[in-house]
Amino acid sequence: MLALLCPLLMPAIARCQACDERLERIDWQTCCPSCGQKETADCLDCQYWAQVYPDFVLRHRGIFVYNDGMKEWMHQYKLLGDYRLRQVVALDVKKSLKTFRYDCLIPIPLSADRYKSRGFNQVTAVLEAASIVYEELLQKHVSLVPLATLSRKERLAIDQPFSLRQGAIESIKGKKILLVDDVYTTGRTLYHAAALIHSCQPTSVESLSLAR
């Protein structure tokens, strides 16, 4: 288990070798250049979203491949609530964010019920561990069934779960926005968020996820 293999769980330090060997970085030379889908030059996901949202393109970057090692880390961190594990990827997030030019970073929110049951937002916890400033301009009113339990078809059929917080329009209009989430699977969550952000007339919207 990653939590047992990695003793280095203090802020601003490198990952231990055992964890590093299990986490695979996305190779951007051999994947979809728009979203990071592994070993796919022109992925079906991006073709689908281009049809659904013809008015904008969401440039996405993922850091790690969603392999067995990442799934294990995500399970222990997010589902079992091992808050210490946010440090395992904090430096990677900090480094990846340097490749973006943005005015405002917005994390994908949890519903109040999900936050209460988990005790933390897995995205903002990593950002805080990396000392990254963010603005919570989106809110989620309802808890959805965990997306990992849904089929691709069921995920794509999910209705818009987000709304804007008070004052969000003024903070977004004319700005370069970066959305951050934990996992990009079909892209449904981030495209819901991006569509809402685009309604506020930003200069651009991009996204980053820990895994793809």
Results as ranks from 00 to 15, higher is better:
G62D: 05
G62S: 12
G62E: 07
G62I: 08
G62V: 10
I63K: 02
I63P: 04
I63V: 09
I63T: 08
I63D: 10
I63Y: 11
F64D: 08
F64T: 08
F64L: 10
V65R: 12
V65F: 01
V65K: 01
V65T: 08
V65M: 10
V65D: 04
V65I: 09
V65C: 13
Y66E: 05
Y66C: 02
N67D: 12
N67V: 05
N67I: 05
N67Y: 11
D68Y: 09
D68H: 08
G69V: 02
G69F: 04
M70N: 00
M70R: 03
M70T: 05
M70A: 15
K71D: 04
K71C: 06
K71V: 09
K71W: 11
K71G: 09
E72S: 13
E72R: 08
E72G: 09
W73S: 02
M74R: 09
M74C: 12
M74T: 15
M74P: 04
H75F: 12
H75Y: 12
H75M: 14
H75G: 08
H75K: 14
Q76V: 10
Q76C: 06
Q76Y: 12
Q76F: 11
Y77A: 06
Y77R: 10
Y77Q: 05
K78D: 02
L79I: 15
L79C: 01
L79V: 15
L79F: 15
L80H: 07
L80Y: 09
L80C: 05
L80M: 13
L80V: 15
G81F: 08
G81C: 07
G81H: 06
G81D: 03
D82F: 14
D82Q: 12
D82L: 15
D82C: 01
Y83A: 00
Y83F: 12
R84I: 01
L85F: 07
L85P: 03
L85R: 04
L85K: 06
L85D: 03
L85Y: 07
L85N: 04
R86A: 01
R86H: 06
R86I: 11
R86W: 06
R86M: 01
R86Q: 14
Q87P: 02
V88I: 08
V88E: 09
V88Y: 02
V88C: 07
V88D: 06
V88Q: 03
V89G: 06
V89W: 01
V89M: 03
A90D: 00
L91K: 10
L91Y: 01
L91P: 01
L91H: 07
L91C: 04
D92K: 04
D92F: 11
D92I: 03
D92M: 13
D92Q: 07
V93T: 07
V93H: 03
V93K: 00
K94R: 15
K94Q: 13
K95R: 14
S96Y: 12
S96N: 10
S96E: 14
S96V: 02
L97E: 06
L97S: 11
L97K: 07
L97A: 11
L97R: 08
L97W: 00
K98C: 14
K98W: 07
K98F: 13
T99N: 14
T99H: 15
F100G: 06
F100S: 06
F100Y: 14
